[in-house]
C-alpha cells in the first residue's frame, strides 16, 4: 500500500509511564514534558514498533545555552548512526534502522548511553545524577507495513498452545561476563525458572561466543549440563536424551533470553557505567539465539512428532547422563 506523502507516526511521551529503566520521574516545564535520564549512564525504553525498517526521532529538551548532549543510541543491541540537530528548545537525535534490527523482535528496545552525567538537585529534594532530558520518542515505519494478519485464528491458537502446553519462565537472571582469548563468555544464572510444569530453583546457562558461533551449556543443580550449539547459519542443535516435548521446552527457554536480559539490564544498570558495546554484543547474540530457538520450535511443531501426544503435566525430565 502506497501511503503517498503520509507517514504513520508512533509517539511515546515520557510524561507517561515507560517500560524500561534508567529514567527519573516525569517533569513538566513550560508545557513540555520530559524525564531526565539517570542515575546511571544507561537508559532503556521498550516500545511497541512495527516490523521492518524505520526511522526515529528522540526529542531532548535543552536549556537555551545547553549544548547538544552526546548520546549513543542502540536498537535491539545494534548501534544506530545518530544525526543531531537543534530545533528551538529541543535537540533532536535522528536515526534509522534496517529490517534486520527488528527481525524477530516483538518490541523495539532502545538503549540510550549518555556520555556524561551531572549532579543536579531533584525538585525540592536531594542531589541526583542526570544525563539528558528526553521528552518524546517518535518512530515511523519506513514502509506501510504488512497487511493485517490473515492468519489471526492460527496466531491465537498458537499463542494459547505455547502458553498452556509449553510454558517456560526464565525467572530472575543474574549475569557475569568474562572472556577467554577471542571468545566472549556469559554466565546466566536463572533463579526461579520454569520448564513446563517443573519449577527449576535455578538454572545455569553458560554461553561461549566466538565469531558467529555460540556454544551453550544448560545445567540444573545435580544434573549434568546439556550441551547446545548454534552454528554460523543460526541453526540450533539441541542435545539428544531429551523427550521431544522437553526439547521444545528448552527451545522455548532460549527464545525468552532477550527478555530476561532486558530484565537484568533494568535491575543491574541503575547508576551503572557499563560497557555498552559489550552489552550490545550479547543483546544481539541472545536475539540470534532466540531466533534459533524459535526456528527449532517452528520446524519441530510443523514436521516433528505430534506435539499433543505427550501429557503436558509430565515433569521436565533431565537425562540421567548426557550422551557423549
Amino acid at each position: 500500500m502506497d501511503t503517498g506523502p503520509w507517514n504513520r507516526r508512533f509517539v511515546h511521551d515520557l510524561l507517561f509511564a515507560t517500560e524500561g529503566s534508567g529514567w527519573h520521574e516525569p517533569e513538566l516545564k513550560d508545557s513540555i514534558g520530559f524525564r531526565w535520564s539517570g542515575p546511571g549512564y544507561f537508559s532503556i525504553l521498550r516500545v511497541p514498533a512495527p516490523a521492518g525498517a524505520g526511522r526515529g526521532e528522540a526529542h531532548l529538551l535543552l536549556s537555551p545555552s545547553e549544548p547538544l548532549p552526546a548520546v549513543v543510541v542502540f536498537l535491539n543491541g545494534r548501534r544506530l548512526e545518530v544525526m543531531q540537530r537543534r530545533l528551538g528548545t529541543f535537540g533532536v537525535l535522528d536515526f534509522a534502522w534496517d529490517a534486520a534490527a527488528m527481525a524477530g523482535e516483538a518490541r523495539a528496545e532502545f538503549w540510550f548511553h549518555a556520555e556524561r552525567l551531572q549532579r543536579l538537585p531533584a525538585p525540592g529534594e536531594r542531589m541526583r545524577s542526570v544525563g539528558f532530558r528526553l521528552s518524546t520518542l517518535a518512530i515511523e515505519p519506513a514502509a506501510a507495513g504488512p497487511a493485517p494478519a490473515g492468519e489471526a485464528l492460527a496466531l491465537i491458537a498458537g499463542s494459547r498452545f505455547l502458553r498452556d502446553r509449553l510454558h517456560v519462565a526464565a525467572g530472575r537472571p543474574r549475569l557475569a561476563f568474562r572472556s577467554d582469548g577471542e571468545a566472549r563468555l556469559l554466565e546466566m544464572r536463572l533463579e526461579g525458572a520454569r520448564l513446563g510444569p517443573s519449577a527449576q530453583p535455578h538454572l545455569t546457562l553458560a554461553l561461549r561466543a566466538t565469531a558467529d558461533v555460540m556454544d551453550l551449556a544448560l545445567a540444573a543443580p545435580g544434573r549434568p549440563a546439556l550441551a547446545l550449539h548454534q552454528g554460523v547459519a543460526g541453526r540450533l542443535a539441541l542435545p539428544e536424551g531429551l523427550s521431544p516435548r522437553d526439547r521444545l521446552l528448552v527451545a522455548r527457554l532460549l527464545a525468552t533470553l532477550p527478555e530476561a536480559f532486558g530484565r537484568w539490564l533494568d535491575e543491574a544498570m541503575t547508576g551503572a557505567a557499563p560497557d555498552a558495546e559489550l552489552l550490545a554484543f550479547w543483546r544481539r547474540g541472545l536475539a540470534r539465539l532466540a531466533r534459533g530457538g524459535e526456528g527449532f520450535l517452528a520446524a519441530a511443531l510443523a514436521d516433528g512428532p505430534d506435539p499433543f501426544a505427550e501429557d503436558p503435566a509430565l515433569p521436565f525430565a533431565w537425562p540421567a547422563q548426557v550422551p557423549g
Binding site: P5, W6, N7, R8, R9, D13
Partner: peptide
Amino acid sequence: GTRFGIEIVRLAERRAWRLD
C-alpha cells in the same frame, strides 16, 4: 486539568501521521 489534557493528546496520538 493539565493531566487530563495530556491524556487527550495521548489518546489522539494513537493515530498520528506526518505529512511530507
